[in-house]
Design a protein around this nucleic acid. Sequence first.
DNA 1: CTCCAGGTATTTT
DNA 2: AAAATACATGGA
Length: 301
Amino acid sequence: MTTEISIAVHQHFNWKECLWYLDRGFDDCIYKVYADRVRRAFDVDGVKMLVEILYENSSLHIKWLFGDPAEIHIDYVRKFVSEWFDLDTDLNPFYERLLANSSLAYMQKDYFGLRFIGMPDLFESLCWCIIGQQINLNFAYKIKRRFVETYGDFIEYEKERYWIFPESEKISNLMISALRALQFSNKKAEYLITVAGCLVDKTLSKELLLKMPDLPSREQMLTSIRGIGRWTANYVLMKNLREPSCIPHGDAGLLNALINHGVIKSKADRQSIDKFFNSFSGWESYLTFYLWRSLAKPQHT
DNA sequence: CTCCAGGTATTTT
DNA sequence: AAAATACATGGA
């Protein structure tokens, strides 16, 4: 007997756009995209599961291909998927702002229904940022895969391996040299092990971050950890905690997108950037995400 | 060879 | 307080 649940989607939603973004030419080892569906493995309290997600009749349908989930695990996956695809945000106010800007209006049409693809696992989002700091994305995804396939677990299903992100406990006990062997720099290795330790000893957690009163204090909590700067803090807050008003300042991709759209002429033009984002107050994160989307190379229909 | 890539910490003005 | 620099690695 297989478990299956559905989540009704009440907002503007384009599954093709979401899947395309997930599979936009980079090799993310943590999920697999097929023609009209995505599969992802989970380990919730030691229970390993593989689920398949597809969209039909205004609902996301989640089917367990592997594992025997109890109610608590089903709820976990339901919540995870809901956060992953940002199912609850009403995009109308954001789209109004896009339409009001002549150089961005096309996004409202071309990317209509594209949800902000999140990263609901805090450790994964932190690791991903540290890995991605100051290196190109292809290389970053390569290292991520190497990292996950070395220290993570997997589920084998129909001769395919579905990887599960490593536990912070395991990473916190590593030596720097172990990660150096995977082509992490000394700094990246050190940062990653430090952050893993913070999660293990509960110096940092999603709950703690949510308890902070406002965005600046959350940013402060993150940047107080070695290896987490302003960029990483904002990235994590938008991708993991779904903060709506984050700007990953200095982000190379974001700056390129701003140049492409004629917002700035040089990457140092902070004033124009601030002014630009001011008109998207409350939607800075979504705007950043759509600008990243605009960078994708391959054509799509 | 040079420059840049979804930066950060440290050192130097 | 602001600016320059070291850090590692791969790809164009």
